[in-house]
Computed example of a mutant assay.
Amino acid sequence: MAGLARELALRIGLAARALPGPGLPGLMAALVDALGVPFSAAKFAQLTVGRLRTAAGGVLAEAPRAALREALGHLQGRIPVVIADAPAPALDPCRDGAMPGSIRVAVASDGGELADGHFGHCRAYLVYQVSARELRLIDYRYAPEPGAKSARGAAHVALVGDCHLVYGRVLGNQATAQLMHAGVHPVCAPEGGPARDRLRPLQAILRGHPPPWLARAMGTRGWVMPASGNAGLRLAGQPSVRALPH
């Protein structure tokens, strides 16, 4: 029973980390209201996103749905736990100009080479140089220590300010605005999983006809957007990406 209690405590801690606004106090209030105590794996298995959102007077109602799904995945043990002190992945440095037509992409990560991080609350950023045919992990940047919300967001934006795109499992409205103001294009990739798998659809776009703003970053002409077209970048299997101004 002690082992189970420790496992449930770990699940709750990871779930709270996926909910940076209400955090642990809000999550605990919702769990107590929705499930009662003591907690158990069987009770967590019956929980739904809808019940989490409405429990305890809606303390989690403002949390993004993707964040609630991630929290529920942790509570139910469906998301693998990454050891926090796992070594950083091996880098493949790239000299300036060595990959013509490439762009730089940051991926929010909580460990290893996984695209499982919440932008602004992740442990690190994987930084890739991406071209139509090549994909190199050129840097691994540890996130700054937690601080005030506004300062933390600005620090994370500054950390990826030299990148053209940044991927995150969750991207809040404020973070999106800060990134776009800094000229970094946000991409919401709630699927998580291996970072390289999340970037393959981007490579397919680079091999084809990238939208004008992306073509400019690559140093190519790209394609001409029809007057009625959508300037957003749509990646296969992912939602539309918010568009940058031309």
Rank of each mutant, 00 (worst) to 15 (best):
C122F: 01
G120T: 07
A108Q: 04
G21P: 03
A84Q: 10
G77Q: 01
C94T: 14
G57S: 06
A154N: 06
S150P: 09
G58K: 02
G147H: 03
A158K: 10
D96L: 13
G101V: 04
L52M: 12
A56F: 05
V82A: 13
R104F: 05
I79M: 03
Q76W: 00
D96N: 07
R133K: 04
G153Y: 09
R136K: 15
D96Y: 03
L135P: 02
R133P: 01
R65P: 07
P22V: 04
Q129W: 07
G73F: 05
R133A: 15
A98G: 04
R78T: 13
V107S: 00
Q76A: 01
A106F: 00
V81A: 13
G101T: 09
V32F: 07
G153N: 11
V49R: 10
P22T: 08
E113Q: 14
H118G: 07
A106G: 11
D92T: 15
G26E: 13
P25A: 09
A151G: 05
M28K: 09
L27D: 07
P89T: 08
G23Y: 04
D85E: 13
V37G: 00
C94E: 13
D85A: 15
P38D: 06
G147E: 08
V105H: 03
A84K: 12
L126Y: 01
G73D: 04
L19Y: 05
G153F: 02
A41N: 06
L31P: 06
A106Y: 02
L137D: 12
A86P: 03
L60D: 01
R133N: 13
P100R: 02
A71Q: 00
S40V: 10
G50P: 01
S150F: 12
T48W: 06
L68R: 02
A108G: 02
R69H: 10
L27Q: 08
E145H: 12
G58N: 07
A88V: 09
D96H: 12
C94G: 02
K149L: 12
Q46E: 14
V32A: 14
V49I: 08
L24F: 05
D33K: 11
V160A: 13
L91C: 02
P89N: 09
G112E: 09
L27I: 10
F39S: 11
H121E: 09
S150M: 13
R78D: 11
R152Y: 01
R78K: 06
L114F: 04
G23R: 08
L137I: 07
V157M: 12
A143N: 13
E134Y: 04
A29H: 01
V130E: 05
P87E: 11
D85S: 15
A158I: 03
I103K: 08
G26W: 12
Q129Y: 01
V81F: 12
L35I: 08
H121G: 04
P100C: 07
P93R: 07
G21H: 06
R95Q: 14
L159A: 15
L24D: 11
G73C: 03
D33F: 07
L91W: 11
S150V: 15
H156D: 14
I79Y: 03
G117M: 12
A34T: 02
A132N: 08
A155T: 06
R78C: 00
I83C: 07
I83Q: 10
I83L: 15
